[in-house]
Design a protein around this nucleic acid. Structure first.
Lengths: 217, 217
DNA sequence: ATATTTAATACCGACCGTCGGTATGTATAA
DNA sequence: TTATACATACCGACGGTCGGTATTAAATAT
């Protein structure tokens, strides 16, 4: 392949190809050669010019995914004119209304063949998303009186944790009924913390999603 | 190495060696040669006589770990003369009193370098532990009136999920205070489900554990 | 301004060591 | 004698390296 004047494009191409391959085949089962083939013309040397290792590519890909999935949290956190509780409600409603991780979950029926990806999301949840995005929202809620919490750091972790790793993959559950039950249990958990932010509108939308995804199997 | 009269011993040796290596170095970074070296004398042919692949060894090792960590659940589930709620309390108290996963967590400061292991525990939680061990206990509690739950299947999943993946690794948290906060949030969550099973005795024991593990770092 | 040199870098592809896995052989237990 | 517990030589594929080439931008000279 001819030399590119602005190499960022090449980096993007590599990441794009790797992203799809990692999701389709899993990280371990994707070889450098696979990436080269998909890029059609780019050489091994080129890849190793831009990345130090295969794992380095994975890290960059994961960063993309987490950035993408955190974009909504970031935007809502800084959205003006809302109470903390309203922001929390917005997060759940909007992430259900237009599921960001669509591409990941739909394109990757063997998402669970790639523990690395799931684990990376988990790691990001604890190290980044919870303290930097959800915690400030809870704090604001505590300040403006719309939320009550004794240990907001841990509560933020728990909520994102359960939402990302337990609730989110529910679309793979064998039945819509199970998805609804998960939603109810999650709702009860949130109410236990004084957070009555889930409503019937969300449940209806959830059923829609569950049905759509179930049909694809 | 000479031929062993009962080959089960050889299988055990292979699993034992692999178990430690997987925990110390992670699965990916452990080579078959590493296992051979650790076994001292046994050959590659021997290993591939007893196992079809490296992944096959991993599966067997994971089965050992999950069996070990489920042994307590199994025993308590079938323990006679207790209400469902009392059994639930027993699970938490006894798993804190003598932490089963001691060996895993202490021997593996890079446990999180092995997403595969963590993921396997997670998978076992959803597919095995929750439906086969915790759910019957919740069901019994519902029957004998000591527990109230609308969706026991999902509740069992959630509880084990949070306990295994969020609470259990807390010993690696930077401070004892954070561990205590996690415990409080978890307690509040359980009380939200009408399960007031955690008490001060557990908290004290937890502080002990957290202090012990923190000193090792 | 234009031409020439220089240094940096985007990219190539042959090559290397290591890995998981296999084929074949040998010794021992039943 | 036959099945099996093990040994060993070997294979292809893998991640990664390295010397080299082509292209570009910056520095310098004209």
């Amino acid at each position: 392949m001819a030399r590119n004047k602005n190499p960022e494009e090449t980096v993007n191409l590599i990441l794009e190809a790797s992203y799809h391959l990692f999701i389709e085949k899993g990280y371990e089962r994707t070889s450098i050669q696979d990436i080269i083939d998909r890029l059609g013309g780019l050489s091994k040397g080129a890849i190793y010019h831009h990345f130090r290792s295969k794992e380095d590519i994975l890290v960059a890909v994961i960063e993309r995914i987490t950035d993408m999935s955190n974009a909504l949290l970031l935007e809502i956190r800084d959205r003006p004119g809302l109470t903390g509780k309203e922001k929390l409600t917005s997060i759940f409603w909007e992430s259900i209304r237009r599921p960001i991780q669509d591409k990941i979950f739909t394109a990757a029926p063997n998402f669970f063949d790639s523990p690395g990806l799931l684990f990376a999301l988990l790691h990001d949840t604890v190290e980044n998303a919870a303290p930097n995005y959800l915690l400030p929202i809870l704090q604001q809620g505590i300040d403006d009186g719309s939320i009550e919490a004794e240990c907001p750091e841990q509560l933020a972790e728990l909520i994102l944790f359960v939402a990302n790793v337990w609730i989110n993959p529910m679309i793979f559950d064998d039945s819509v009924e199970d998805a609804v039950r998960k939603f109810r249990v999650f709702d009860k958990m949130m109410r236990g913390f004084g957070l009555d932010i889930l409503d019937e509108r969300m449940l209806e939308r959830l059923k829609e999603l569950a049905e759509i995804y179930n049909k694809r199997k």
